[in-house]
């Protein structure tokens, strides 16, 4: 599954820290993502998952540390680095008064997709997210599950090398969650994915590697295969790591 080769790194963040009023929301986080890898970012609420993701996507400047996306420094050269990124934030960024096609067309323009290819790109991303027959509908009239899928369609329309999904399954029903997992696995074939969640089974079912964060630090970074070999249960590890940390402080 994971293929350890230094040149295949798509994302590399080193010693990331972010302070809010002198307290660290994220402290000295180093993470690397390989091509075609699906990384699960786990942690209790307030562990710094979203802050980390916002830094990786250029929505928040780190207090210290460096981020490289496909070899391009995000802080020095944000425009070309962001071209390799697709991001679905916790709350999907959708214009409720646009139709699905209009919205995806706008996003395609933002990503500088060639005019001739825009129609094709819209169709492609709709097909991947199961939105083919929704093109003419207003986003505001669609259900939460469909809106979440538009959020993903928005993140993959420019075929990015890295897709960052912040809790993509929140608020979905079990069927939609299953579909979402299939979609994520399908996307993982062509891109690297970072997926944040606090549902452990989600990581077990769709990720290659797991990274557990607690109180702004990384407390575990391991391939799932290795965990399975040691026959360790993710849930036990999770409770151990996050609760011991909590007791110490």
């Amino acid at each position: 599954m994971t293929n350890h080769n230094a040149s295949s790194l798509t994302l590399s963040a080193k010693h990331l820290s972010r302070a809010y009023n002198r307290s660290f929301a994220v402290h000295d986080v180093t993470l690397q993502l390989e091509k075609g890898e699906i990384l699960g970012l786990l942690g209790p609420n307030g562990a710094g998952k979203s802050t980390t993701m916002r830094m990786l996507t250029g929505n928040l400047a780190p207090s210290s540390g460096s981020i490289e996306i496909c070899g391009i420094d995000l802080l020095d050269n944000p425009k070309s680095a962001k071209a390799h990124l697709g991001y679905l934030p916790e709350i999907p960024p959708l214009y409720m008064d646009m139709t699905v096609d209009e919205f995806l067309g706008f996003v395609a323009q933002l990503h500088r997709i060639d005019k001739k290819r825009i129609v094709h790109a819209i169709e492609d991303s709709k097909k991947q997210c199961g939105l083919t027959d929704r093109g003419k509908q207003l986003i505001g009239t669609l259900s939460k599950g469909l809106q979440q899928r538009i959020g993903i369609a928005q993140a993959i329309i420019h075929e990015p090398d890295i897709i960052i999904l912040d809790e993509p399954t929140v608020g979905l029903d079990p069927n939609q969650i299953r579909e979402m997992r299939q979609l994520i696995r399908a996307l993982g074939r062509s891109s690297s994915i970072i997926l944040s969640t606090h549902i452990l089974s989600e990581v077990e079912s769709s990720c290659d590697r797991v990274l557990i964060m607690n109180e702004g630090r990384i407390v575990l970074d391991q391939a799932l295969v290795e965990l399975r070999q040691k026959s360790m249960d993710l849930e036990t590890i999770f409770t151990e790591l996050t609760q011991i940390e909590a007791k110490l402080h």
Binding site: G58, K79, L94
Partner: peptide
């Protein structure tokens, strides 16, 4: 208010 600013900030534009 609608959290759509993120879309513009994450896109490769200044």
């Amino acid at each position: 208010k609608n959290h759509t600013l993120v879309l513009l900030v994450s896109a490769p534009i200044a």
